[in-house]
Design a protein around this nucleic acid. Sequence first.
DNA 1: AGATGTAATTTTGAATTCATAATTAAGTCA
DNA 2: TGACTTAATTATGAATTCAAAATTACATCT
Lengths: 229, 229
Amino acid sequence: MMEKTEANMIERKSLHLELVERIRPLIIDSQLVPGRKVPEKDLCERFQVSRTPMREALKVLASEGLVRLEPNRGAWVTTVTTNEVKEVFPILGVLEALSGELACKYITDAEIREVRALHEDMLQSYRARDLAAYFESNQKIHRAILLAARNDTLTKSCQTLSARMQRARYIANMSEERWANAVSEHEQIIKTLEARDGQSLSAVLVEHMKNKQDSVLRWLSTTQTDQEL
Amino acid sequence: MMEKTEANMIERKSLHLELVERIRPLIIDSQLVPGRKVPEKDLCERFQVSRTPMREALKVLASEGLVRLEPNRGAWVTTVTTNEVKEVFPILGVLEALSGELACKYITDAEIREVRALHEDMLQSYRARDLAAYFESNQKIHRAILLAARNDTLTKSCQTLSARMQRARYIANMSEERWANAVSEHEQIIKTLEARDGQSLSAVLVEHMKNKQDSVLRWLSTTQTDQEL
DNA sequence: AGATGTAATTTTGAATTCATAATTAAGTCA
DNA sequence: TGACTTAATTATGAATTCAAAATTACATCT
């Protein structure tokens, strides 16, 4: 019997979208180096596609802010600048606040338990000082809350903006103090979520984001002198 | 003497971006009809370009949610569905709230006077029952506040989401009562802005957006039975 | 007529080609 | 040596081409 649910629909992707989804993570974890040229030819060879769909993909990535197109000079991987950080984090703050508010309304008890489990995983990683694992659980928690908000547009907006801030190197530079604080903020997040206290969760998420911004800005100031964009 | 300010920089646009910016308004004011196929060939002839840059442009417009690409079946102008309205307006609410907050911080006295002037224009149009002119002033006010927030990313995010909600027909269907209320909300907006009361402005903008959502939903329910995304 | 199958046509997706712009390399002269 | 030209090379942008898919038109059969 043929069901008509979305889950059963045959999903066919266009080549350019496939490329967008393959190249985006390369940018997010800095395999494509910020500030450097996007090696169009190499990528075409790597993925065995012609330049047409690759260039279409780059145009989409440009509209997401992950690459910058310079007319007649090609595509460049964008860098994270202090200015951009100051612009994007406050936006992410209010968007996550909204997601928290909505999540408290719509999240199921089962989902809350899942988030709690992710939280415990995260604590585990924190105690083991396993930054990569910590970061992954962290991401999953934020994503779970976002999904619980039942708003695909919100999910997409957050993820697009997050991607720009999420160049991998950052996490490797979180101070021990900031890390401890982040964990305690997450305690608040899980508590207010379990209490379904949307107001408080919003407030915690905004504060959490503000601290994250400061942490990133601190790191940026110690490493590089903004080069471009 | 050659200055290096951004204002003086020669702006060269790629063809696909030019097309994005030309086609976007066609979608926003429904010259390209929601739910119908994007006439790729016609548009190519109209703008005298080949299919390559046109198709690049459509990919970008798809990532903005203005068209939907169906593999092997081409591009379709998206329709505004109740589900989408319920998703997007709350996001716009918090984003505009943020813009109000920031605007109160950064707006200059001269800019406030400009917004006041736009507000007076808008009242003028309201009294004359000139919906088109009213709508234009209205847009300009929201845009002025957004610009005063000094956050390009925020501006872009708002405009992208607004575009999806702004199919022209809507405005033609605002009730007299809703219109009156919208005007009085705008009185509050200009007052709180002049007082630089970020908190209050935020609140008013959220409320304003909520009412706008209801108005659009009411209109949607009277006209069409949702066909498709 | 209505359903089903097949051929012709059109549209789409993506590779290829080609003109132009940018970059690099080589040459010239102070 | 180093600044400035000019030529060769490469990369980019966009038109064109071509294969595959979808749509339409037509024919056949019940």
